[in-house]
């Protein structure tokens, strides 16, 4: 479970990337963070693993506060999938996936590349699950297509059986068909391991299709929070144009529902 409590993030130049965020994401949920570019989606996600420190408020993970001292251990349970895949392009696919284990592998093993047999087996299994073939193992990650690279990214993310997966625009640089494949992969893997997913997107159709819940973000504030069914075309319009809307208030996640608009 992830909980943002009165979370603020201001950049040194004065931009308020996130303002007074209160949000609770229960275990196992596929939560889509939707919003236009610059809304603060990346900032919100990166606060969950401490890549971004709050200016005010805090982030709780399973009841423990994320701070400098707890961060090292908590990060092992929080995997991340990136928009630009962030693979080590000149390294083999196998090593890129094994790199997902680095926090729990001894330095000697990591430096020598001599991973345990069960870790190697796990890497193969993950790569199979994301739909890659044995001949990809030795291939350089940079030589794969974008969709294949993101599959490697997904495999790497699930290597440590994470409780939480943060996916920051995982399909923003992929075409629609492959985007659906990748999102299905993430959703299925997450269901299997009962993993919480926080996934930022900017395509509303994908958000409706894959999200258990949609959090609409605009200018650093939550302007919509509800089930995909409640996310009407009017909501889309206002999310991207700034107009106000009325939201029915009968959805399930009552605890963390925000019906307010960022700027009234």
């Amino acid at each position: 479970m992830i909980r943002f409590e009165e979370f603020d993030k201001a950049w040194p130049d004065g931009t308020l990337a996130l303002g007074n965020i209160n949000l609770e994401i229960p275990r196992g949920q596929f939560c889509v963070v939707l919003g236009p570019s610059g809304a603060g989606k990346s900032t919100l996600l990166r606060a969950v693993n401490g890549l971004i420190k709050p200016t005010r408020g805090r982030v709780m993970i399973n009841g423990a506060e994320l701070n400098i001292s707890s961060q090292r251990l908590l990060r092992q349970q929080v995997a991340m999938i990136h928009q630009h895949f962030n693979l080590t392009t000149r390294m083999s696919v196998a090593n890129n996936v094994l790199a997902g284990l680095l926090p729990v592998v001894s330095t000697a093993r990591a430096l020598s590349g001599w991973f345990r047999p069960e870790h190697r087996a796990k890497a193969c299994r993950m790569l199979e699950e994301v739909g890659l073939a044995p001949e990809h193992l030795k291939r350089r990650a940079g030589d794969l297509s974008g969709g294949q690279q993101q599959r490697v990214g997904v495999a790497r993310a699930f290597m440590l059986n994470p409780q939480i997966v943060l996916a920051d625009e995982p399909v923003a640089s992929l075409d629609p068909k492959i985007s659906r494949d990748i999102l299905s992969l993430i959703r299925d893997a997450a269901r299997e391991h009962h993993t919480t997913v926080v996934c930022s997107l900017h395509q509303t159709d994908l958000a409706r299709e894959f999200g258990d819940r949609i959090v609409g973000l605009r200018d650093g504030a939550i302007v919509f929070d509800g089930a995909p069914a409640e996310f009407t075309d009017a909501c889309i319009h206002s999310l991207y144009s700034g107009a106000q809307w009325e939201t029915p208030s009968e959805h399930s996640d009552a605890a963390s529902t925000h019906l307010t608009l960022a700027h009234a």
């Binding site: 090292r72 990136h82 693979l87 790199a99 990591a110």
Partner: peptide
């Protein structure tokens, strides 16, 4: 910086990040 950020995000530590990223 991208691969380094990916490894930093899971808490891999500096030396391992250097070797793998």
């Amino acid at each position: 910086k991208k691969p380094q950020e990916a490894l930093e995000a899971i808490g891999a530590g500096k030396l391992k990040t250097l070797c793998y990223g």
